[in-house]
Design a protein around this nucleic acid. Structure first.
Lengths: 200, 200
DNA sequence: CCAAACCTACCAATTTGTAGGTAAATCGTA
DNA sequence: TACGATTTACCTACAAATTGGTAGGTTTGG
């Protein structure tokens, strides 16, 4: 008998389903029956894999989600080479390959619904996973002289909000060359070059 | 006896409370008992003012919310004079004077929970109220030669996402001169000037 | 007086969580 | 290897609380 379940194939199915649903709909909008159905089991069976119930499930998969973002972002940024534009392109591509990460909903709706100890940890993790990697890349570009002095933390956050907001573009507005990816790259160009001067 | 209640002071209290709560927490996370408590009445009394129940209440206050944004944005943009920077400053100030408008949550969680006819109308209204006014100001700045050729719709949406994302900045990170307003203005400067060239 | 505004009390459905059971895989050991 | 014991991964059934919504009565202001 174990207090803390280790990772099995069936448990992974549950966590994957829960992560996708919570990320898409938010904590209160997702029921355990939804999660069970998505994982192919009854809701009561979820308690076998996650004894802590809904809140523990949400906290675990949300932490997992943030950790994966941190890894995915730092990975994309380092593999893109020492050029800030290509780095930001790669970061945006990663973000758009994942389900939307709605930090506003997280702050105003999801986190207030869980115990404050968990909420604070998740809040810190959000910064460390989403903002910090981009901020670090901007700081290094600043040292390399690629960009001028700027509030790197603010720019990183703004960039993130900009790219994530592309998820609210309806699919009907996406066609041909106008994908979320090309739109993200165009927005990054604006951040780097501005829209007053003609593109170099 | 009226089928459609006209506007009274008490009904306004209900709509104001509902609008604030729905905007902050989203459709499913807000209960009618929450709305009633915020308006100072029992949840059953809400049906006196809005016979259609929760969904009708949500649709009505969300429409109202969008209409007010459309008015507030166009008003701020026109009153700021013919300078795109001042116009965008004013638009951002308006957005930050209102409760957060989380379009991602709206698209992925709120709208799927209401009848599709209402969802489509609200989706169109979101574009017309939030994006279109900013896009128009950018187009006019383009004609005036203030900015270079750019995808004005894309920039407007990106700007909006950027400014709204400031709501996910924890209050603990706001102190002294570092308010959401000053941060929004700094981000607008980046959009206009870029971060590669030194500020003029 | 009378209608608007609000109330209490309830219902049916849903949701989280618990209790207890079952089939099948796995393990320890003779 | 044979085989009983245990563990895993699920199930059905139910309890308690919450939710949207309804019925009908009561207060209150013009």
């Amino acid at each position: 008998m174990r207090d803390i379940p280790l990772t099995t194939e069936a448990r992974e199915r549950v966590l994957d389903a829960a992560e996708r649903l919570f990320a898409q709909k938010g904590y209160t909008a997702v029921t355990l029956r939804d999660v069970g159905a998505a994982a192919g089991i009854r809701h009561a069976s979820l308690y076998h894999h996650v004894p802590g119930g809904k809140e523990a499930l949400f906290v675990e998969v949300t932490e997992r989600h943030f950790y994966r973002h941190r890894h995915g972002l730092t990975d994309a940024l380092t593999k893109a080479g020492p050029n800030i534009r290509q780095q930001l392109y790669a970061a945006a591509d990663w973000l758009l390959s994942q389900p939307p990460m709605d930090l506003i909903r997280m702050a105003y709706s999801d986190l207030p619904a869980v115990a404050s100890t968990h909420a604070e940890r998740l809040s810190d993790l959000a910064y460390a996973s989403m903002i910090a990697p981009i901020e670090q890349a901007l700081r290094q570009a600043l040292e390399r002289g690629e960009i001028q002095h700027a509030d790197t933390g603010l720019i990183a956050g703004g960039l993130l909000g900009m790219v994530e907001s592309l998820y609210s573009v309806p699919d009907s507005a996406l066609q041909g060359e106008r994908t979320r990816k090309t739109m993200a790259h165009a927005l990054i160009d604006v951040i780097l070059d501005g829209i007053r001067e003609p593109k170099k």
